[in-house]
C-alpha cells in the first residue's frame, strides 16, 4: 500500500486460508516426532504462496519452536544444526524476495513469570526463537513480539537473557494492565522497540485524536533503518451464541474505513509494516486491499 510515496506493507499468518492444505509447522505427535526441517519446508510452501499473493510480511506459528524448558532448548539447538541446509534455503528465499518475518509467542515467552519453572521455560524459549531468527539470517527488524505483563517482573527476566537474545525482542502494548506510557518507558529503558497494537490501544481508552502522538512515540523506539511493526485489527461485532462479543476479540475481517483513517495517520510518519490480526488471515488482507482501493477513491495506491 502506498500513499504519497510512503510504503505501508501488510502482513498475515501463520495460516493462509487460501491454502488450508498447507501446514504452518510440523504437527506430529508426540512432540518428539517433530523436526524443525519439516516445519521449515512448511514455511517455504507458505511463503511461496504468500509471495504469489503479494504478501511479504509473515508471522511464524508459535508452535514452530516447541521449547518449554532448558532440555528442549538443547534438543532444538541440535535440530538447528541438523536443519542447516534447509535454513539456508529458506533464508535465501526470504532474502531474495524481501520477506519480513515476525513471531508472537506471547504465551511461551512470559519473562515476567514469577514461578521459577515457567520463567526458565520463557528464557529457554526466548533463546530458541532468537537463535532461529539468527539462523534464518533475518534483519534486526524481525522481532519476537512479547508482552511485558508485570514491568518489574519483565525487567528481571529480561536481564537474565544474553544480549543477542535481548536484541531480538520487541514489546507490544496490551489491552489491559500496564499503560502505554509505562510500556514506552520500559521499551526505552531496555532498548526494545514497541510494536503498537491499534485495537489494544483503543481498548485501554486511547483516542483516535491522540493516535499520531502515540505512534510517534512508538516510532522513536525503533532504530534508524528499521521499519516499525504495527498490529492492526478491529473488534468483532457479531452476535455469538446470543451474547455480545468482547471488544478485545478480533473480527474476521478488517473495517476498511477504520483502517483508512489509521493509514492516513500512520503513513506521514514513515514506512512501516502492518500485521493484520484478523481471523480470516490472508482472506482479510486481500479483502482489505480491495476495499481500500475502492473506497479511497484512488487516494491510497495499493502496492
Amino acid at each position: 500500500m502506498r500513499w504519497e510515496g510512503r510504503l505501508l506493507r501488510l502482513g498475515t499468518g501463520p495460516r493462509l486460508l487460501t491454502r488450508p492444505d498447507i501446514a504452518t509447522h510440523d504437527t506430529r505427535l508426540p512432540l518428539s516426532r517433530r523436526h524443525l526441517s519439516v516445519s521449515l519446508v512448511c514455511l517455504s510452501d507458505l511463503l511461496q504462496t504468500a509471495l504469489e499473493l503479494g504478501i511479504r510480511f509473515y508471522r511464524l506459528a508459535s508452535q514452530f519452536v516447541p521449547v518449554f524448558c532448558r532440555d528442549d532448548l538443547v534438543a532444538f539447538r541440535e535440530e538447528l544444526q541438523e536443519s542447516a541446509s534447509v535454513l539456508r534455503w529458506v533464508a535465501e528465499l526470504m532474502g531474495r524476495e524481501g520477506v519480513r518475518l515476525t513471531a508472537h509467542p506471547f504465551l511461551q515467552v512470559q519473562l515476567a513469570a514469577a514461578e521459577p519453572q515457567r520463567r526458565e521455560g520463557a528464557l529457554a524459549a526466548a533463546c530458541a526463537w532468537a537463535e532461529l531468527l539468527d539462523s534464518l539470517e533475518l534483519g534486526p527488524e524481525c522481532r519476537i513480539v512479547v508482552h511485558a505483563a508485570d514491568p518489574q517482573g519483565f525487567r528481571e527476566g529480561f536481564s537474565c537473557l544474553p544480549a543477542a537474545v535481548q536484541g531480538r525482542l520487541a514489546l507490544e502494548n496490551e489491552p489491559s494492565g500496564a499503560s502505554l506510557a509505562t510500556l514506552l518507558a520500559l521499551s526505552l529503558e531496555c532498548s526494545l522497540p514497541l510494536v503498537f497494537d491499534y485495537q489494544h490501544y483503543r481498548c485501554t481508552g486511547g483516542e483516535a485524536q491522540g493516535l499520531a502522538e502515540v505512534l510517534q512515540a512508538a516510532w522513536r523506539t525503533w532504530r534508524p533503518g528499521e521499519r516499525p511493526e504495527v498490529h492492526f485489527s478491529t473488534p468483532r461485532t457479531n452476535l455469538e451464541h446470543g451474547r455480545a462479543p468482547s471488544a478485545v476479540a478480533h473480527a474476521d475481517f478488517v473495517d476498511p474505513f477504520a483502517f483508512a483513517d489509521f493509514a492516513a495517520t500512520v503513513l506521514p510518519l514513515g514506512d512501516c509494516d502492518v500485521f493484520l490480526e484478523a481471523r480470516a488471515k490472508d482472506l482479510a488482507l486481500l479483502k482489505l486491499r480491495a476495499d481500500v482501493a475502492r473506497f479511497s477513491g484512488g487516494r491510497i495506491e495499493l502496492g
Partner: peptide, 10 residues
C-alpha cells in the same frame, strides 16, 4: 483432487 485440509504434518 482436493489435497489435505489439515496440512502436511497434520
Amino acid at each position: 483432487g482436493r489435497a489435505a485440509t489439515r496440512g502436511a504434518a497434520a
